[in-house]
Write a protein that binds this DNA or RNA. Structure first.
Lengths: 187, 187
DNA sequence: TTAAATGTGTCGGATATACAACAGATTCAA
DNA sequence: TTGAATCTGTTGTATATCCGACACATTTAA
């Protein structure tokens, strides 16, 4: 409802911090990136960093979430529903995201990254499911459970692909997984 | 003497403005770039622009000067003198700079660009000449006149090259000009 | 082990920047 | 031509950010 435009300085500073972090993560592992590194690259004061983020782990969560969400929402959000096409698009977004990160390997953060991916997936999937619902028989509780399961399943598929089918094209691999995911949706 | 470090915000804002301007000038002609364009791209308030620059023409001068100076000083400054090699390097810096601009043609600004190039050249050449001087027989007056003439001459050469010898390699063309320039230095 | 160096997180006071509003200039279509 | 729209500079007030300093943790080297 109330829009409450946020101060341009805030938007700019957050962007500078996020961009710097993403940029640095292409050169170093997460564990080696310090707050000082980021603020120097972003040309902002260290104190300002703490005005916007609790600590560097908080930034990591938010930055990765945002990057992944941009990968996803560029296609999905506007009124589409959960079907073979949208599942494929999401799968590609995940694998691209994974690859953009694992150019550098980020030891010790595998679980964190996995959780972020699932969380973002769940958000998007829930939206897709809601778009496919009639107004009347809208069951939020059920959709939450379902989108949670689908998110785990889809992430799991990307994990399998990375481990055992890295040589295949992801577009092809996901086709063989889709039937099982669809089975969850149809009843 | 007194160093008086400048506020990080100032450095950052100037950089954002300059970068945005350079970036925009790759998409539009100078005449079509508004202050609003720049401040939106830079994510700063329009009033802040006027805190740092008199107007857009002031920015143009300073931005181009800086870009060109970076092209030049990366090589020259540290203790070199004016010789065939440094003349060649300067000539290449000019032609590269010209080409980076004339991807878009900037009608109505040819004279301004020419003047900026000569001014920056003069600064660098003066430094090179001073480096080659003995402490004792240091004649500032004479060096100023000489560096001014050399700057005009070198710019003129780049202009001739652009008009009539654009197909030749600039490294080659400048070789045939160097003798005349050197004649001014030797006595 | 110790000590020096570097990083973290927080504070109060100074200031560059955002915002909103303004009058005047310029552009542009009707 | 006229008027609507956009751009240019400028101003006063609110605030996000800077700076310097601090105590405490962590890393590094001797």
């Amino acid at each position: 409802m109330s829009e409450a435009k946020t101060d341009l300085r805030v938007l700019r500073t957050r962007k500078l911090i996020m961009d710097s972090f993403i940029n640095l993560s292409g050169q170093k592992e997460f564990r080696d990136i310090t707050v000082k590194d980021i603020t120097e690259e972003a040309m902002i004061n260290r104190a300002t960093f703490y005005y916007h983020f609790e600590d560097i782990h908080d930034l990591l969560e938010k930055a990765l979430s945002e990057v992944l969400l941009i990968n996803l929402s560029a296609d999905q959000f506007d009124g589409r529903t959960l079907d073979e096409q949208s599942i494929t698009d999401m799968f590609l977004a995940i694998t691209e995201f994974q690859q953009s990160l694992s150019n550098r390997c980020h030891r010790g953060y595998e679980e964190t990254i996995a959780r972020i991916i699932r969380e973002q997936l769940e958000t998007v999937i829930f939206q897709l499911l809601a778009n496919g619902q009639e107004e009347k028989d809208f069951k939020e509780q059920g959709l939450k459970i379902l989108s949670n399961m689908l998110a785990w399943g889809l992430y799991g598929a990307s994990d399998q692909w990375k481990k055992y089918h890295f040589d295949e094209k992801p577009e092809g691999y996901i086709q063989s997984v889709i039937p099982y995911l669809v089975k969850l949706v149809k009843e």
